[in-house]
Write a protein that binds this DNA or RNA. Sequence first.
RNA 1: GCUCGAGUGGUGGAAUCGGUAGACACGUUGGACUUAAAAUCCAAUGGACAUUAGUCCGUGCGGGUUCAAGUCCCGCCUCGAGUACCA
Length: 1006
Amino acid sequence: MHYNFKEIEAKWQKYWAEHHTFRAENTSVKPKFYVLDMFPYPSGAGLHVGHPLGYIASDIYARYKRHQGFNVLHPMGYDSFGLPAEQYAIQTGQHPADTTRVNIEGGIDKEGNSISGYRRQLDRMGFSFDWSREVRTSNPGYYKWTQWIFIQLFNAWYNKVSDKAEDIKTLVAAFEVSGNQDINAVCDSDVPIFSANEWKQYSQKRQQQILLKYRLTYLAESEVNWCPALGTVLANDEIINGVSERGGHPVIRKKMTQWSMRITAYAERLLNGLEKIDWPQPLKDSQANWIGRSVGAIVKFKVISTDAESLLEGALKPSNSKNYIEVFTTRPDTIFGVSFMTLAPEHELVPLITTSRQKAEVEAYIEATARRSERDRMADVKSISGAFTGAYVEHPFTKEPVPVWIGDYVLAGYGTGAVMSVPCGDQRDYDFARHFGIPIPNIFEDVDISQEAFADKDNTVIANSDFLNGLTYKEATLKVIEALEKISQGKGTVNYRLRDAVFSRQRYWGEPFPVFYDKDGMPQMLDEKFLPLKLPEVKKYLPTESGEPPLGNAAVWAWDIKLSEVVNTRLIDHKTVFPLELNTMPGWAGSSQYFNRYMDPHNEKAIFSKEAVNYWQDVDLYIGGSEHATGHLLYARFWQKFMFDLGLVPYGEFAKKLINQGMITGTSAFVYVWNKKHNKHPILISKEVIEKAIRENGFLYDYSEKLDSLFSDLKSRMFEGRTIAETSWKHFNPIHVDVSLINTSDELDIEAFKIWRPEYADAEFITGEEGSFKVGREVEKMSKSKYNVVSPDAICNDYGADSLRLYEMFLGPLEQSKPWNTAGITGAHSFLKKLWKLYVDDEGIRDLKAEPSSENLKTLHKTIKKVKADIENFSFNTSVSTFMICVNELTSQNCRSKAILEPLAILVSPYAPHIAEELWEKLGNTSSIATASYPKFEAKYVIEDSKEYPISFNGKLRFTLELPLDMNKEQIEATVMAHEKTQQQLQGRIPKKIIIVPGKIVNIVG
RNA sequence: GCUCGAGUGGUGGAAUCGGUAGACACGUUGGACUUAAAAUCCAAUGGACAUUAGUCCGUGCGGGUUCAAGUCCCGCCUCGAGUACCA
């Protein structure tokens, strides 16, 4: 009986589905274990062999935990809202829901392509997912709860005193008692101070406007890139040199009202929480970086001189006495080095303080910066630009006037949008000062600032700074903050780089907001009991002609508060029928709580039941890509903390441990084409021919007369100051070849290639000596356009899922990126065949009644120990080697013992579950191997009584010597010194020193 | 620029605590079986010199610590990822 993987794999996949082998129960006496994968976006291209890497690792872990007696939750679903489906809909008019369904479930797309579907692809790889818990973010039954969370966020504010989110009602109650004077909340910066009485007298609309400044999700004006010609908002990377990538239309920066998430309220907790979770350090670093906590001070500079005095009196003073300009600085110790101040061009005070003389220049500058996209502005760091406003502020200590400039190196969105410029201590201030001829006072002791600024905090000694002279950075910072606080012109503060997250998208294929706008234009939440608010049908998936998002095309998209249902937009009367929100939620909305929904995915009454979340608690192991470091993984942590504040989940962090699997790259294949105009037909040259010619002759023209004539015109150029190899290769045009046309020895199937690429049907192929045509290979990202995509289906057909699983793990460390090379899979496949042969011969199951030998037991227990340790360290590649070693040893030991082979099947089962089930059954077991208990390691079988000692002389290994392990140092020394080889090495010399580490090494020095 | 990773045979990689560098596999070469191919099995495989021992060199580069360094320390180089005027 040979190893018929096709039959075996189909048989067990069917068995698992029919017996619900991997269904997790929400109540169990077993301990729980939650293994989660990042769910995929179901694209039309299907999975390639790179995608399942993480799924295989998590599946091995989940199966291992089942063998260990855990009740394992290992779910899978689809992040099925997203841009590609929408773009496809715009092009073809097909509903994204339909194409998405086909991408998941399989079928025929509009071009007649047969799509096998994610589900079938995943099933073929033998994953132990509990499919009864599948979620799809685009299903109304799922996004109902995404909308529900949005409503909870809207109904919450962040109380800094309790340091958590609270119900908005508690805020209203506080306003009614004592206004907002004593409220310490995370809110917009422009909240006016009001008393309880004032609050009560505000109109309904005014009250709502104020509350919006406190809510955890709120409407705010955000700047977007608006393209009037296309009638749409563009992402930064869709703009090149200020015009749209497609069509070249001008793009302007425009303020638009958008929903935002007040994630900044959680900045500190998101940062601190990182210490509690076992996530990869690089990922934690990048989150910490993204949050960007910096400690410094806010300093207030009084505006003292501008000809716009009336404006100062009239416009600045009443709103929070803003005849001061606030800056944020991390170096308050350098305050005596201030020689100017710079504001972002968008700073709200710029128009108010600019003098009439400078007005034209400042306005021109502002306009010029507004025209540049944010990306251009950031990309162009080198050129220095700015303008003087004509105004002066007063230095808080010296009382000297300080000129106020604007410059686009100051970002409106960070800190206060204004900086105190200390050119001697900051390179950007230094460059700006140099450029505009502003003085650069030096406030550092013994530092030369004639060439560049001095920013080395740790080696700072302050000078020329009044009461700060002689102090270090730390001392001066403390002292200056104290002094600023005394004169009420500043205070120590913490600033974050993290911005609130814009939550609106002008797209169709996303979650609709459960929001309508009342007669005042204020947002109102739908009552929870009317959720889900389903995505409406539209005729077109593009923005409307008036520039509204695609939902503006929906005919039935208004909310009737009497009927409590969605009605035709024509009925909008702003009395009982109101317009619904036209934006949809961004991609990360649906993925920010899916891990909790898996605990109780069919619950219609609640996002999940208390019982379910109390049992499953949190994710024990999460595996996914590092590209989500500052997106999904940060937002999900934010929502989890919010859910924790509401008392819905037991922990503020959703995943204890996280592993980033590396990317599997493709190995592209190239042929090299010489297609100069004087060729009658293209000439393709085998790589080995080119290499041989270069190796032997310096260059190709010596190798072939025919080519010589073609290349002669280039001869002279070819050697010009470059290496031969470099110049030579330049004259060949490499083109990608589909990797399926290449055999394991990198040889091209020429006939197949001619069929695939008819334009080369009459090409001349210059082959190597044995008639083979070798391609060049290079590692690149796996992508359709590079023809290096390998599909798991093809591998399953040719070698089976078990081979695929083993090989993907064998490729290298899970977290590392590594190239795919199909040729190598034969190693994994022949391992499985060898394994099979241990149990089965031509007739069927072998007679396995033999008593295990001590060698057999040693091999088995060595393997148990190593594989167990490897799984727990996520070192799956080395455990595959261990299996190979084990099977090689048992084969040469001629092992015929069930006592060895039965536990071995369990060890292999997490990695290659199909063959393990089949062998388990052949051994006479009637139930699935999935929950068989994991073999126990017994040290007594692996105890060695001797060791082959390496004997080194002066650190160099000269020979090895087998010695009993119970020998002590003295005995070892005596034996080694008496050995003839030792004497031979020493040649009569007396060793200075003899190092003996029992059980390890002997080193003789001298 | 900043932050974080990583550099080991022809290739993917192993070496868990400073203790025999290159496990395991691919590829290559030679052999067996076969009319032939596939499959399978056996042997060799870091480099150089010597081909009987044996010797030297070798983990990106240059130093250092140590009886002993891929591993630890100092200074560089290269590649990759993230981030980008963050005051």
